[in-house]
Design a protein around this nucleic acid. Structure first.
Lengths: 248, 248
DNA sequence: GATAATTTGTTCGTATGTATC
DNA sequence: CGATACATACGAACAAATTAT
């Protein structure tokens, strides 16, 4: 339990590398995560106080704080001030923030991100086909009608984007997979600027009707529960966008 | 309305700030992430030292340190000792760690996770169909042969799992999407215990031949570039596993 | 309702290890 | 080798918030 290997590295030992012993903070993080993954600390449970941890592990309280802070940022721990620190009891949105940052650092709408979007759309359609009730289909048709109305009466970039988002949001609701919904949300968020540019091009060219048709196509595939055509439907959807890309 | 006066009553000389609600550290994190997302701090660039930041923002150095540490654990910043702290220049694996923890906290192989696996397999197949070269197909066939050999000669859980992982790893390589590969890796990791149980059941029942056939099916779909059959192929793959689940 | 105890939040000071020049 | 710059780590003190008495 006592940590005092550092004495060896003072003057005597240059024969073997001290080999990058992990920092104290990293070791504390490792201990806590291990305890959580092993089930010693269960979701919702309270962990020892900072002072207790620093004493029982023989480290400074500030180091414990840094470790805890890191885990809070990852969403693994939740701090309730003056009450204690607790193990999170499930998925939280902030667990996907790092992924957002990563995608942005990679440059936003890269081919990899676009492909991921594609894959998710196919997946959402398949799940929708499996799970959609009659009420779901009715609502989906409604959002399709809303899109048509928007295109006829108010074809601005914002309005069309809103209708598009509403339609795909409806699909997500039908697919009913919280995990996929959250990841999709991240991806959509990163790809949004690109999509807005694409919609603007649609409007400029007066091709909103074709966009509507592509969405109707998606709707039809779901109504008919025609899984074999899923990939094609989404492919059409995307191929057209790629086309817009290269010409804009 | 009247209640909010109590802050001023504590000590005589505190007329200044209404004491904003967010914690200091969170505000520092917000500032840094904003700067990075806006492009004021670019990937690979060095950020000011802890001391400079603490002075320019009027906060303690330890708070800056905690904020930076948090961003490091998210993979957004990279610390090079005695050199400075830098903005990360792309995706790093640790950005997906929080997702792992979240899934584990949710309970591991939940239906949502299984569905996500399913969706990714379909996606990987589609990308593979688009990108596979002749060499790729040859390698894929090879890993299929390896699986067959394993099943004939050494049908242990570990060996079969290894062959299965090798096959799907080959698919991932062909699909050539680093983002999807990383996320898939996370999902597979969480779902692994469940898969191992399933393989054990296959072996016990002597149904490894059927498992091999399912994989051959996947291979055939890719060779023929038959996108319409992707969903079906993966569906067979999964339906059987679900079946195993409910009976074990 | 007021007070005390507990626990996290924030800051400062200091010493030390480590990489760069 | 020394000087410098920086991160690492500990300790101490006080502030703020919540709960319990």
């Amino acid at each position: 339990m006592v940590i005092m290997e550092k004495k060896n590295a003072t003057k005597a030992g240059r024969l073997l590398r001290p080999m990058r012993q992990k920092s104290i903070v990293d070791r504390i993080i490792a201990r806590l995560t291990d305890a959580i993954m092993n089930g010693q600390l269960k979701p919702g449970q309270r962990i020892p106080t900072e002072t207790e941890l620093s004493e029982s592990m023989g480290v400074g309280r500030n180091s414990v704080r840094e470790a805890i802070k890191a885990l809070v940022t990852m969403g693994l721990l939740v701090i309730r001030r003056a009450e204690g620190t607790f193990v999170a009891d499930g998925f939280s949105d902030r667990m996907l923030d790092p992924m957002v940052y990563g995608m942005v650092l990679e440059g936003g709408s890269t081919p990899a991100v676009m492909e991921l979007r594609h894959v998710f759309e196919v997946g959402v359609m398949e799940l929708s086909i499996e799970k959609a009730t009659k009420q779901d289909l009715a609502r989906l048709k409604k959002s399709l009608a809303f899109m048509e109305k928007t295109i006829r009466e108010k074809p601005t970039t914002e309005a069309v984007m809103m209708a598009d988002i509403a339609f795909h949001g409806e699909l997500q609701r039908i697919a009913a997979n919280p995990l996929m919904e959250k990841i999709s949300f991240v991806v959509e968020r990163v790809a949004r600027p690109t999509r807005e540019r694409a919609v603007a091009v649609f409007i400029r060219r007066g091709e909103l009707d074709y966009m509507l048709e592509l969405h109707k196509n998606i709707y039809e595939v779901i109504v008919r529960r025609d899984k074999a055509r899923i990939v094609d439907a989404i492919n059409d959807h995307f191929l057209y966008w790629k086309d817009v890309f290269q010409q804009s």
